[in-house]
Nucleic acid binder design. Structure first.
Lengths: 188, 188
DNA sequence: TAAACTTTACCGAACATTCGGTAAATATTC
DNA sequence: GAATATTTACCGAATGTTCGGTAAAGTTTA
């Protein structure tokens, strides 16, 4: 091989950081090149199918880390439910750097890319909902309660990120995570 | 004067419908022109400061209708709180056509326009929070409870819109509004 | 009242710039 | 030297924006 200046994972993480802050249409090739430290053509060498493929790779990357850091933990029934909850909420808090980072799933669900990526994004959301539903059931909730709580996690995370960043008040995000934890642990 | 082809309000509503679905960077002048039925140059006649001014006019329009349809109702202490709640939630449901329409505030908080419009968007969110806090207090909640509930409205609406549209399951939005209503009316 | 002037709304064509993407050449590693 | 990675230079198309001009309505003046 020739000199690989940056590993593929690093490139993807830089692409992620651009897409998440400016969205798909807002991200220009020049900006993506500058962020990765590569020239445009080098990006096209790694992603021959162009910009959409770059965003697709970012989504695959997110899909993967979502499965390992969130879903797998939630479904790991060898751990006590309360510990699973705490671990996952901490992971989520880190994912968004305490509410300071946008969610790339939201960023990619607008504009030219929206229809292309919608089903994949839906898959990631569904994974979370499945995992949190299982956790809620293990915490003694009824089926409808569990579904409602699980949906509330995705809704709360996405909504809180928007509010926290718009108000420039990251604590809103942490408060929301705390409320989610309390809801799951609440005894009827 | 020459005859006006479309009133300013109609133009703004068409601009709104484009911006809300594709975002700021995703909206091309050609698309905005086609949606309004005017030529690009005619749009520049009405908005000499260009695309940003068009999005700004849309935001002003939203700001206004938010104040009259939501905030003013919430603060109208001549009406019983429960009725205010019901009226406003119905209005919100209509605003987003039962969860099928994106929120233009979210659409404009990404990309090139994000920093330009952030404070104005924050003002609209703050208006809602102020109004819902007042309502919660009138429903007998404590101050911290009221603030938390009010924040939860904005978070819930924004988050539910994202989830509903990604999953193509608009009912998610209605369910969230119902949960919000229940939370406000719940007796401790 | 009618002609002359001004203002307003609109349009088609062009503007410079930036867009995503490509081809050919150079550099690096095995 | 064969293969891969990266770069420089470039392309056509699309971007947001501006310009010159036209038609209609209002205003002024004779």
């Amino acid at each position: 091989m020739a000199s690989v200046k940056v590993t593929n994972d690093v490139v993807i993480e830089q692409l992620l950081s651009v897409f998440r802050t400016v969205g798909y249409d807002g991200a220009s090739m020049a900006q993506l090149a500058e962020a990765t430290g590569l020239q445009k053509s080098s990006l096209y060498h790694r992603f021959p199918d162009g910009k959409q493929a770059m965003a697709g790779a970012v989504l695959d990357y997110i899909d993967e880390s979502s499965k390992t850091d969130v879903v797998a933990v939630l479904l790991n029934t060898t751990l006590p439910p309360a510990q699973r909850l705490k671990t996952v909420l901490t992971a989520i808090n880190n994912l968004y750097n305490g509410g300071q980072l946008s969610c790339v799933l939201r960023a990619l669900s607008l504009g030219s890319a929206a229809e292309v990526f919608r089903s994949q994004i839906a898959g990631i959301f569904t994974g979370w909902i499945t995992g949190f539903t299982r956790l809620a059931l293990d915490l003694g909730k009824s089926q409808p309660e569990a579904s409602q709580l699980a949906q509330g996690v995705v809704i709360g995370v996405q909504g809180a990120l928007i509010l926290a960043q718009t108000l420039q008040q990251p604590t809103v995000f942490g408060q929301t995570l705390a409320r989610i934890e309390a809801d799951f642990l609440a005894q009827l």
